[in-house]
């Protein structure tokens, strides 16, 4: 189909799975972090904010190498998992999922942080004075009023994970069906001078990404975060 090989389809399926999981996990993770960051000012917040933004600065292969050390059997996390009778995380889907979560973290946290800051504390205070508990408040007030921020966060995370390359290259080991995602496959195609296959996949990726971004931004114009 579309001139793609089974190998290509495998990579596409794997990539979409990785992006979907990364986005879901990050929305769950980034929401409380962003809320906390937006709910005041302190040195600890500045510290956390800086740490979250680090993946923007670090070259992906460097980040990948550190993750390789930490998640491998000799690293603190990998070693702990091994002691518990589990496998370390290098060269596994779980490993690149974790890497993607870290790598795309700023793209989820920053739009939400921005949305929550713009929203301010007032709507939440109003809702609590009306008897709504924290979870109720989140779903009945904060989420509807910051929908734009959530859409942007999810889109950027998803798109950024699709394009993720350096980290996965280092940490994943390019295992078909497990860690060989689309960007790595395109790179392999190009490096092995299989330009036709590389072009096909790149074009697909490009069109897909463009359509997603366009639809989301068009949609999002209607749902700006409401200012109080």
């Amino acid at each position: 189909m579309l001139g793609l090989s089974p190998e290509d389809w495998q990579a596409i399926e794997l990539t979409l799975r990785l992006c979907l999981y990364t986005t879901l996990i990050l929305l769950l993770l980034a929401t409380p972090i962003a809320w906390w960051l937006a709910s005041g000012r302190s040195w600890l917040r500045t510290l956390v904010q800086s740490v979250v933004a680090l993946p923007l600065v670090l070259p992906p292969t460097v980040l990948g190498f550190y993750l390789l050390i930490v998640l491998g059997p000799l690293g603190p996390i990998g070693a702990t998992l091994e002691q518990m009778g589990l496998n370390h995380l290098a060269f596994s889907f779980e490993g690149i999922l974790l890497a993607s979560v870290i790598y795309s973290m700023p793209f989820a946290v920053q739009p939400l942080h921005e949305a929550f800051s713009t929203l301010g504390r007032r709507p939440s205070e109003v809702a609590s004075s009306l008897g709504a508990g924290p979870i109720d408040r989140f779903f009945s007030v904060i989420l509807p009023l910051t929908r734009g921020g959530f859409i942007v966060a999810a889109t950027l995370t998803f798109a950024h994970t699709i394009g993720e390359f350096g980290v996965i290259l280092m940490l994943g080991g390019s295992i078909p069906g497990e860690t060989r995602v689309l960007s790595v496959l395109i790179y392999d195609h190009a490096e092995s001078m299989n330009y036709a296959a590389a072009h096909r996949l790149s074009a697909m990726l490009l069109i897909f990404a463009f359509v997603v971004l366009f639809v989301v931004y068009a949609f999002n114009r209607r749902f700006r975060t409401v200012r109080f």
């Binding site: 190498f65 998640l71 059997p73 080991g173 295992i175 790179y187 392999d188």
Partner: peptide
């Protein structure tokens, strides 16, 4: 059980980190 580096230096890094046995 094989994992792939894009070049020989990356292979060296994978093993130097201990992630590849």
């Amino acid at each position: 059980r094989v994992v792939y580096g894009e070049n020989i230096s990356q292979v060296a890094q994978m093993s130097a980190s201990g992630a590849a046995d």
